[in-house]
Design a protein around this nucleic acid. Structure first.
Lengths: 139, 139
DNA sequence: TAATAACATACTAAATAGGTAGGTTGATTT
DNA sequence: AAATCAACCTACCTATTTAGTATGTTATTA
């Protein structure tokens, strides 16, 4: 299950992508628009700025903005930063010590297949696919 | 992440499928072969018997056996019983109260897509795909 | 009736999730 | 230079879940 950290992170990025026009957006604005506790949101934005998904600026006029184009934010990159890992089992985590039984492990291929299914999907979707596309046509 | 409950359950089912020949296999045997605490394993087998994936028989000569053919055990059915739900977000759980914001929720399609990717994969793999296939040929 | 083995209930320690509280640093405006 | 604003940082808290352990009770068979 994806925790609130990951889900809120996604909502925040959508919010910033849709409401910023290159400007910094204060956490305050985001929190009230998204109806999420300011303080809790803060702890999530720390992860996103440390992971270089957001740029933070202090002081008056400060806030957060995206560091790159929406097309460059894959769902996988967003969720990996907030959830830590998306691997369904510990032995498939990045940098996991190789399991001694891996060659005889009958369940490993299943977990690898599941991991690939999840990863492939999450890499195929970007923030650009999700945000409001202003439709420039009438009737 | 799949918990030990789900991982052990899968190992148990593989173990029974490979070692039973229609006989009941006592938990004791499985626990020692799989090197899992007997008592903890017991709590997992309760889930599997209640979920009709295993048949338990008490007393001497008792133990557990499969209730159906290995082809009929999808990974999804096994993991759903042990993990409770595989839905990546609460609003996609079976029997979840419909979310009021679902029509305007921009993140919902992403979670639905992820859910489908996971579900499709786990339904495509069965216990029969995993167990040892005795190869009846020589050199 | 003795041994066997599933079934049932209760408890525990450690980790994680989801938050809250308060203070500090840096940028901007007055 | 001072006041304000807003990100940043550290520490704490509560409830739930995970991964077990312990102690029985019931049903079956030799």
């Amino acid at each position: 299950m994806i925790s609130t950290r990951g889900r809120y992170a996604l909502r925040v990025l959508i919010d910033i992508a849709e409401n910023s026009n290159g400007n910094y957006i204060p956490l305050n604005d985001i929190a009230s628009r998204q109806d999420i506790s300011e303080k809790y949101l803060e702890s999530i934005l720390v992860l996103l700025t440390h992971g270089n998904l957001l740029n933070g600026l202090r002081g008056k006029g400060g806030g957060y903005k995206l560091t790159k184009a929406p097309e460059e934010y894959t769902m996988k990159s967003i969720l990996t930063i907030t959830e830590g890992t998306l691997a369904p089992v510990a032995c498939l985590k990045d940098g996991a010590e190789p399991c001694l039984k891996s060659s005889s492990c009958k369940t490993l291929p299943v977990w690898q297949g599941l991991n690939k299914a999840i990863t492939d999907y999450l890499e195929s979707v970007t923030l650009a696919d999700i945000i409001e596309k202003p439709d420039n046509y009438s009737i």
